[in-house]
Amino acid sequence: MNDRSSSPAAIEVAGLSKSYGPHRALDDVSFSVQHGSVTGFLGPNGAGKSTTLRMLVGLTTPTAGAARVLGGLYGDLPNPGRRVGVLLDASAQHAGRTGREVLRLNAMVMGLPLDRVQEMLHRVGLTPAEADRRAGTYSLGMRQRLGIASALLGDPEVLILDEPANGLDPAGIHWMRGLLREFADRGGAVLLSSHLLAEIEAVADDLVFIGGGRVIAAGSKRSLLDAAGGDLEDLFLTLTADHGREDVA
């Protein structure tokens, strides 16, 4: 579908490590995300997914290694929101701010026309009445929709989403899969994390498994499926279980 080998990767993570004192949260993590594809970033809670994503956008400084987005450091992007849409934590919203106002502030920073706000509210299925409610009253599913609207606001070419399906109902999850698939099919690159394999399996082209701060498997979904004899869940459980034993040993 896409010629992946010739174009440089949208996201390139190389040897990323992070230590908090003696604790090594991330250990030499490397992977890449290509344009026109969805990469699922999988691992149990506490595996280092969020830390990796935070380093990608410069919120956390790595102890070693580097993360590059669109060929450079995220922090060097002049107006990052116009190139990279980010959703790290849908609940990190001011409880007293309305959903519409959240988008309006973000549109202001990015220098976008205000009709973009209405457009995105419509796109993620937040009604005008819901948009005028304070975010503190939102369900987790509504917060995720608001967060996705915020990530899409600047019409970016890369999406970085941390657990975006958390709190979405089955219809919501189905809707998000369609949205991400369409985004990638138009040439965008998506990196999305989850601790739930089923959420990711249906939409991802490539998978990166992480456990205990290390990449334990990575590759195209097809090749991983073949290696696992058709059942990714088995593979996932085996990999994470193996890793657990390694830690103990």
Binding site: L59, G75, P80, L88, A92, Q93, H94, N106, M110
Partner: peptide
């Protein structure tokens, strides 16, 4: 409020 309400996560992502 950027920390207490955790809006800094978005603020500092949009303006690193």
């Amino acid at each position: 409020s950027e920390w207490s309400q955790r809006t800094g996560l978005v603020t500092f992502t949009l303006v690193p």
